Simulated assay, not measured.
Amino acid sequence: MTDLAGAAGYLLEAGMLKRARRSGWWIAGVRDPESIAEHSWRAALTGMVIASLEGADPARTAMLCVLHDTPETRIGDIPKIGRDYLTAADPREVVADQTADCPDRMTETVRDAIAEFEAGETPEAVCAKDADKLECLIQAVEYRHQGVATVGRWIDSSLAALKTDTAQRLAREVLEAEPLAWEQTRHQR
């Protein structure tokens, strides 16, 4: 095994997130829900925005968001109702297995990020957790706009979970916004 074989394996495994769907949306009646990777991408972008406005490190927050669901390559996306019946492995344990053959510096980076996100104590982790919930709310608003009428619970629970003032204010703006309004606006040069 070369010194980067483990890193290559980790990257290939992470690709599963592009194919794995967010299963909670099936409960809401979404036929083709977003992938876990699509969620993580917009969560990272959302986290960067929240962190920059909250005075936290936007790059660190975005990294936490990109990595936060990587354990789901091995345990799947368990919807909230499923958590009442199942006990998922601790994400830190999953990541320890995922990175066991990776170079030490990479392993430390990934494991530390997941531990920080799970602990939720640093300003970056608080912003990342808010980004995770706010992204769910944004997605629910988009699905509602597409005709899925049963997403109210996802909106309500996501809104209730937000901690930062910025995330709460952004959520209110998203709830009032027309999802495609951006397409009709452009500034003349």
Rank of each mutant, 00 (worst) to 15 (best):
residue 166 T to I: 14
residue 51 A to M: 12
residue 165 D to N: 10
residue 178 E to D: 13
residue 185 T to N: 00
residue 37 A to Y: 13
residue 28 A to G: 02
residue 104 D to L: 12
residue 176 E to T: 04
residue 131 A to V: 13
residue 134 L to N: 06
residue 128 A to S: 05
residue 85 Y to W: 14
residue 185 T to D: 01
residue 61 T to F: 08
residue 148 V to E: 03
residue 177 A to L: 03
residue 24 G to N: 10
residue 71 P to H: 01
residue 172 R to M: 09
residue 100 A to W: 00
residue 1 M to P: 15
residue 160 A to I: 00
residue 69 D to E: 15
residue 24 G to V: 01
residue 85 Y to K: 03
residue 128 A to H: 07
residue 41 W to F: 07
residue 134 L to W: 07
residue 43 A to G: 04
residue 179 P to Q: 07
residue 104 D to R: 13
residue 130 D to N: 04
residue 20 A to V: 00
residue 189 R to Y: 09
residue 49 V to G: 05
residue 50 I to R: 13
residue 116 E to I: 08
residue 45 L to M: 03
residue 43 A to W: 01
residue 77 D to W: 10
residue 82 G to Y: 06
residue 99 T to P: 05
residue 69 D to K: 04
residue 147 G to D: 13
residue 132 D to A: 01
residue 3 D to C: 14
residue 84 D to H: 06
residue 39 H to P: 04
residue 144 R to Y: 09
residue 83 R to V: 04
residue 112 D to P: 05
residue 165 D to M: 07
residue 154 W to T: 11
residue 47 G to T: 09
residue 49 V to A: 14
residue 18 K to I: 00
residue 62 A to W: 02
residue 184 Q to P: 00
residue 164 T to Q: 08
residue 132 D to F: 02
residue 12 L to N: 09
residue 9 G to R: 15
residue 14 A to K: 15
residue 175 L to N: 07
residue 38 E to D: 12
residue 72 E to P: 01
residue 72 E to T: 10
residue 52 S to L: 08
residue 154 W to M: 15
residue 147 G to E: 10
residue 75 I to H: 02
residue 121 E to S: 10
residue 84 D to P: 00
residue 126 V to E: 08
residue 148 V to D: 03
residue 60 R to L: 07
residue 74 R to L: 14
residue 93 E to T: 11
residue 133 K to N: 09
residue 172 R to T: 08
residue 146 Q to C: 11
residue 88 A to M: 13
residue 101 D to V: 01
residue 17 L to C: 04
residue 19 R to P: 03
residue 9 G to C: 05
residue 8 A to N: 14
residue 59 A to C: 03
residue 108 E to Y: 04
residue 58 P to C: 12
residue 40 S to Q: 11
residue 164 T to D: 11
residue 55 G to L: 05
residue 124 E to P: 03
residue 180 L to V: 10
residue 168 Q to F: 04
residue 40 S to V: 02
residue 145 H to S: 15
residue 26 W to P: 00
residue 152 G to V: 00
residue 171 A to R: 10
residue 2 T to M: 13
